[in-house]
Simulated scan of single mutants.
Amino acid sequence: MPLATTRRTGLVDQVIGQLRDAIAQGEWPVGQRIPTETALAETLGVGRNTVREAIRALSHSGLLEVRQGDGTYVRATSEVSGAVRRLCGSELREVLQVRRSLEVEGARLAATARSDEDLARLTELLDARDRAQNENSHEDFVRADTEFHFMVVHCGHNRLLTELYRGLTETVTASVAATSYDHLTERVAIGHRGLLTAIADRDPARAAAEAGGFLDQLLLREESGSPRPQG
């Protein structure tokens, strides 16, 4: 999205808002360097100091990372995701623990509150996940698996829980990518048909157990030191 010239009141807040929107809408993907302060100042019609303050604020909130002598890079697409990245870093075990807390409750709520349309969408995503596994398509598998887990939480129709989980999108995607490589290549993928069936049967206790069970397997694998691909 093109950046628009700001008004002359509350300049820093306006620049923060525009940069945050640009990041959220994918103008600059995670890991990409954003334009220089000079370029942004010219585009927005403000001074470099205003841009510098806005970048500093977004850096503190975890959306941007300033690398001295190199530039400023996108670190996350939301403050929640940025906070998780700062707290967890590359500690996969901690990410899985946080996912377990949210996804178990999400599955419990989904079994109670899901609609027929929700169930149809869950089935579509799980079918796509299984196809990707059978075809050894790691990228498609990661995408479908991440979307499936988000949809489970969404099916609970708790807006706060859904938005909290949405804020973890990059972190969840990274954890799926890190934990799915071995079981894709070795054909020992952790399945989710039991979870889908429990939600379809409106059985909250079984849905919670299914959601917690597969994450417990991933945690055990991580704690046992199973090798994962590097890079």
Rank of each mutant, 00 (worst) to 15 (best):
A110P: 08
G26N: 07
W28V: 00
R99Y: 00
A120Y: 09
V12D: 11
W28D: 02
V172Q: 01
V74H: 00
G231V: 08
R75V: 03
M151W: 10
D118T: 15
R93W: 15
G45E: 04
E210H: 07
L92C: 05
H154L: 08
V74S: 04
I190N: 11
V188W: 06
L161Y: 01
S101P: 00
V98A: 13
A189T: 09
S90F: 01
I34K: 13
L102G: 10
I55C: 08
E65K: 07
W28E: 02
N134L: 11
E53P: 02
R85T: 01
R187Y: 15
E27V: 06
R85P: 02
L44Q: 12
T162W: 12
H60N: 00
G82A: 11
P229E: 08
G62D: 04
R193Q: 13
Q18S: 06
I55R: 09
R93V: 15
L19N: 05
T36E: 12
L164W: 14
T173D: 06
T38W: 11
L102A: 14
H154T: 10
L161P: 00
L44M: 11
N136D: 07
T36Y: 12
Q32D: 07
S61M: 05
D118Y: 10
L125M: 12
I190F: 11
L122R: 08
R129P: 07
L64P: 08
L218E: 02
W28N: 03
Q68V: 13
L19G: 05
A24H: 12
F141S: 14
L215Q: 07
S137Q: 05
R100T: 15
Q133A: 15
L196G: 10
G106K: 06
